[in-house]
Amino acid sequence: MSFTKIIGGALALGAAAQAAYTIQDSYDTTNFFDGFDFFNEPDPTNGFVNYVSASEANALSLAGYANGGIYLGVDANTTNPPNGRSSVRISSKKTYSQGLIIADIAHQPAAVCGSWPAFWTVGPNWPAGGEIDIIEGVNMATNTTYTLHTSADCTFSQGDCNAPGTGSNGCPTLSNDVQTLADGFNAIGGGIFALEWTSSAINIFFFPRTGSIPQDIAAGSPDPSTWGSPQTSFSGSGCDIPSHFTDNQIVFDTTFCGDWAGKVWPYDPICSTKAATCQDYVAANPTAFKDSYWLINSVKVYSDATNGTATTRRRFHA
């Protein structure tokens, strides 16, 4: 893989589309790292991870440009790192309330015991501002889990999105498509995830690279009404979406163990045989994570004039 470290560039806006949705922000290899902040605080999900700053990521070649895309990797060299395995978590400087987010991704972190990668959005004062998990899975999982996390009084057919007292469990729905996550996704050269977020529904679509990407996406004029059924749809009278989801940042990260991958470790029939604990395995096996990287072609955010534009207030931490 040809790798180039982070370089500068001005944040650019794309041309207006000729459909209901018009381009608001386009993040690609010309400007990506100008539009995202690096999170280097302790992991809120208690992972065995050392999230590094932009300068550290640059020095360690954990973030940059490779193969025509944006590369976000993890440390696959250090044995027994004292503060957790080094990794990257980035959050968009802008926040969004409703709109259409289209992510063209060429590679996700591979399936490996101890890994917990995610592509998601999150609002302020979690879970009050809401969280939308688009790509997420742990250990050797083969299918992504779409999940919403909210404060109280938000229920869809998928369940109550607020866990009693904490909001941590959310309302998950497992994709039935093995091409949505990790090795199955990488085997087809990746694809496109689209989050359509309106006042009445949160819909998530997935289009494999192999011939099923709508032409209107490629043309920059996306029209979700022509795409058929989404992978999952959260809608109905049980949740007032505008009051539970607001000012969300776009986030990519890869953590290890923690509140999900670590918690289920003892019950995992494959991973539990490799080491006594998740942290033991992650610490002792750096080369297992050589393919634990994101390769992102672009992330584009569109607004819909009929439902109001996305919010663009800047925040710095999730």
Results as ranks from 00 to 15, higher is better:
residue 213 I to H: 00
residue 192 I to Q: 03
residue 219 A to R: 02
residue 212 S to H: 03
residue 205 F to D: 11
residue 197 W to N: 15
residue 209 R to Y: 04
residue 210 T to M: 04
residue 202 I to Q: 06
residue 201 A to K: 14
residue 194 A to I: 13
residue 219 A to M: 06
residue 204 I to Q: 13
residue 191 G to D: 10
residue 200 S to Y: 12
residue 207 F to R: 00
residue 207 F to K: 01
residue 198 T to Q: 10
residue 200 S to E: 15
residue 212 S to V: 11
residue 220 G to I: 05
residue 200 S to K: 13
residue 198 T to Y: 04
residue 192 I to N: 01
residue 216 D to K: 06
residue 209 R to H: 13
residue 217 I to L: 03
residue 193 F to H: 13
residue 197 W to S: 14
residue 193 F to A: 12
residue 216 D to C: 04
residue 198 T to A: 11
residue 197 W to Q: 13
residue 201 A to Y: 11
residue 205 F to E: 07
residue 210 T to H: 03
residue 214 P to V: 02
residue 220 G to Y: 05
residue 196 E to L: 08
residue 191 G to T: 08
residue 198 T to P: 07
residue 205 F to K: 12
residue 207 F to H: 02
residue 195 L to D: 01
residue 203 N to L: 14
residue 213 I to M: 04
residue 213 I to L: 03
residue 202 I to K: 10
residue 194 A to K: 01
residue 210 T to D: 10
residue 210 T to E: 12
residue 205 F to Q: 13
residue 211 G to Q: 04
residue 214 P to F: 04
residue 195 L to N: 02
residue 191 G to L: 06
residue 209 R to I: 00
residue 191 G to V: 09
residue 209 R to G: 07
residue 196 E to C: 05
residue 191 G to N: 10
residue 209 R to A: 09
residue 202 I to M: 09
residue 204 I to W: 08
residue 199 S to W: 13
residue 219 A to W: 11
residue 196 E to T: 07
residue 210 T to Q: 11
residue 192 I to P: 02
residue 207 F to E: 12
residue 198 T to E: 11
residue 196 E to R: 15
residue 211 G to S: 06
residue 220 G to E: 09
residue 202 I to V: 12
residue 212 S to N: 09
residue 207 F to G: 07
residue 205 F to S: 12
residue 218 A to Q: 11
residue 216 D to I: 01
residue 204 I to C: 06
residue 198 T to F: 02
residue 207 F to W: 06
residue 205 F to I: 14
residue 220 G to D: 12
residue 192 I to C: 05
residue 217 I to F: 01
residue 204 I to V: 14
residue 193 F to M: 11
residue 207 F to C: 06
residue 210 T to F: 01
residue 206 F to G: 01
residue 214 P to N: 08
residue 193 F to E: 15
residue 195 L to V: 11
residue 201 A to L: 07
residue 199 S to T: 15
residue 204 I to G: 09
residue 212 S to C: 06
residue 198 T to H: 09
residue 195 L to W: 00
residue 192 I to G: 04
residue 212 S to G: 01
residue 190 G to Q: 04
residue 212 S to Y: 09
residue 196 E to Q: 15
residue 213 I to R: 00
residue 205 F to W: 13
residue 208 P to K: 14
residue 193 F to I: 09
residue 198 T to L: 05
residue 200 S to D: 15
residue 193 F to S: 12
residue 208 P to W: 05
residue 202 I to G: 07
residue 218 A to E: 13
residue 220 G to Q: 05
residue 198 T to K: 13
residue 219 A to K: 02
residue 220 G to P: 03
residue 200 S to Q: 14
residue 197 W to H: 11
residue 215 Q to K: 10
residue 211 G to C: 08
residue 203 N to K: 15
residue 220 G to R: 00
residue 214 P to A: 04
residue 196 E to D: 08
residue 216 D to R: 03
residue 191 G to R: 06
residue 200 S to I: 01
residue 209 R to W: 03
residue 207 F to Q: 07
residue 200 S to M: 03
residue 203 N to Q: 15
residue 201 A to C: 09
residue 211 G to F: 02
residue 210 T to L: 03
residue 215 Q to C: 06
residue 194 A to M: 10
residue 191 G to E: 08
residue 203 N to M: 13
residue 197 W to A: 14
residue 195 L to A: 03
residue 201 A to V: 05
residue 209 R to V: 00
residue 190 G to K: 01
residue 201 A to E: 14
residue 207 F to A: 10
residue 199 S to V: 11
